[in-house]
C-alpha cells in the first residue's frame, strides 16, 4: 500500500444522492408538462421556455462569477429548474425582454441576493413571476388561445382563462350556472385545453410529473396533498353555502396554477418547511389563501401569492413545528403525572 490511509468521522458510506440528481429529477418530471405546453402553444411556448432557462442560467453564472467571486455551480440544475418553472408561469406570448427581466429578478433578487441556492426565503421563480405580474399586468394576463395560436408568438390571438371568465362574470352580476357554459368541460380542463400560463394548463401531465417525483422520493406527499385537499375543502364549503356564486372544488383544482403550484412550486425544497407537520400546515395555508384570493381578492388567480406568503412563514413554522421526537409520547405523560 503506497497511499496514506484516509481518516474521517463516521459514517463512511453515502447514499449517492446529490443536489443535481434532485434538480434533474424535477426537470424530468416537468417534461410532460413542457410537451403539453408545446402542443397547445407551439412556437410561443418554445421561445418563452428557452429564453427563460437560458436567461436564468446566464444570470446565475454571471452573478456567481463576477459578483460573488465564487465558482459557478450552474451545472447543479437549480437555475434551469427556476427558468423552467418561471416559463411555466408566464403566458406564451410574452416578449423576450420581459422574460429576461423576470429571469433577472428571479435569480438576482429571488435567489442570489440571499446567498444563492439554499438560502432564499422565497421561491425564485415566483418572485420573478409576481414581479412581472405587478409591473406588466397587461402582458402577463393576456392569455393565448390554446391550439389556435400554435404558430403565433407575439401576435397570438388571446382569450380569457376560466378563472377570469368566472371572476369577471360574477362581478358583472351573472350567475355561475350561466358562466359554466362559457368555460371548457372538466375533461378539457384536465387535458389542458384552456387559456393560461404555458405550463400550468395540462393537469394530466402535471399529475404524471408529480407521480414521478413521489416515486423517486424527491418530494413527499405532504405538501401536494395538503394544498389540494385544503383548496378542495374550502372551495366545497363555499360552494355548498351558495352554489350560484361560488364555483365547486373540481373547478378550483383544475383551473389556474393550483396543480403546478401544489406539485412543483410549493414543494420547492429551499422555501418549504422541514418537518412533516410543518409541511401540512404550510400546505393548508397555501390552499386557504389561494381560495381567499380567488374568491374575494382582486386577482382571478392567487396561487403565486399564496405560496410566497406562506414562504415567509416557513422560518416560523420550522421554529415551532418540530418533528415528533423519539420517546416523546412517554415523556409528555410523565410530565403530566408530576
Amino acid at each position: 500500500m503506497n497511499q496514506k490511509l484516509v481518516v474521517s468521522p463516521s459514517p463512511h458510506v453515502h447514499s449517492g444522492d446529490s443536489v443535481p440528481k434532485n434538480m434533474y429529477g424535477v426537470i424530468i418530471a416537468l417534461i410532460p408538462a413542457l410537451l403539453a405546453s408545446l402542443w397547445y402553444f407551439g412556437i410561443g411556448a418554445l421561445i418563452v421556455t428557452l429564453t427563460a432557462i437560458a436567461a436564468c442560467v446566464l444570470f446565475e453564472w454571471v452573478i456567481q462569477k463576477y459578483l460573488m467571486k465564487a465558482t459557478p455551480s450552474i451545472s447543479d440544475g437549480s437555475a434551469a429548474v427556476t427558468g423552467l418553472l418561471l416559463a411555466f408561469n408566464m403566458p406564451s406570448n410574452l416578449p423576450i425582454g420581459l422574460i429576461i427581466i423576470g429571469a433577472a429578478v428571479a435569480i438576482g433578487i429571488g435567489k442570489m441576493s440571499f446567498g444563492g441556492l439554499g438560502n432564499n426565503t422565497f421561491n425564485p421563480a415566483l418572485v420573478g413571476r409576481v414581479f412581472l405580474l405587478i409591473s406588466f399586468p397587461v402582458q402577463m394576463t393576456s392569455w393565448p388561445v390554446p391550439v389556435a395560436s400554435r404558430f403565433q408568438y407575439l401576435d397570438a390571438t388571446t382569450g380569457a382563462t376560466p378563472l377570469s371568465v368566472v371572476k369577471e362574470g360574477l362581478s358583472s352580476g351573472a350567475s355561475l350556472s350561466e358562466l359554466m357554459g362559457e368555460i371548457p368541460s372538466y375533461l378539457n380542463l384536465f387535458m389542458g385545453n384552456m387559456g393560461g400560463s404555458a405550463g400550468e394548463i395540462a393537469g394530466i401531465t402535471l399529475v404524471l410529473g408529480v407521480l414521478y417525483l413521489l416515486w423517486r422520493k424527491i418530494i413527499t406527499w405532504h405538501i401536494p396533498v395538503s394544498v389540494l385537499g385544503s383548496v378542495a375543502v374550502f372551495a366545497a364549503i363555499l360552494n355548498i353555502s351558495d352554489p350560484e356564486s361560488y364555483a365547486g372544488p373540481l373547478f378550483h383544482l383544475l383551473t389556474g396554477g393550483v396543480l403546478l403550484g401544489a406539485f412543483f412550486m410549493a414543494t420547492d425544497y429551499v422555501s418549504s418547511p422541514m418537518s412533516k407537520k410543518g409541511m401540512l400546515l404550510y400546505g393548508v395555508g397555501i390552499g386557504l389563501i389561494t381560495v381567499l384570493i380567488r374568491v374575494y381578492g382582486s386577482y382571478p388567480e392567487g396561487v403565486s401569492f399564496a405560496i410566497l406568503i406562506m414562504n415567509a412563514f416557513v422560518p416560523l413554522i420550522d421554529r415551532y413545528m418540530k418533528p415528533k421526537r423519539f420517546g416523546e409520547k412517554v415523556k409528555t405523560t410523565k410530565v403530566q403525572k408530576q
Partner: peptide, 17 residues
C-alpha cells in the same frame, strides 16, 4: 455544498431530530 433544505435528514433521523 450548501444545504438545500430538502429535509431528508429530518425524515431519516430515527430519533426525530
Amino acid at each position: 455544498e450548501n444545504c438545500i433544505r430538502c429535509g431528508k435528514c429530518v425524515s431519516v433521523c430515527p430519533m426525530g431530530l
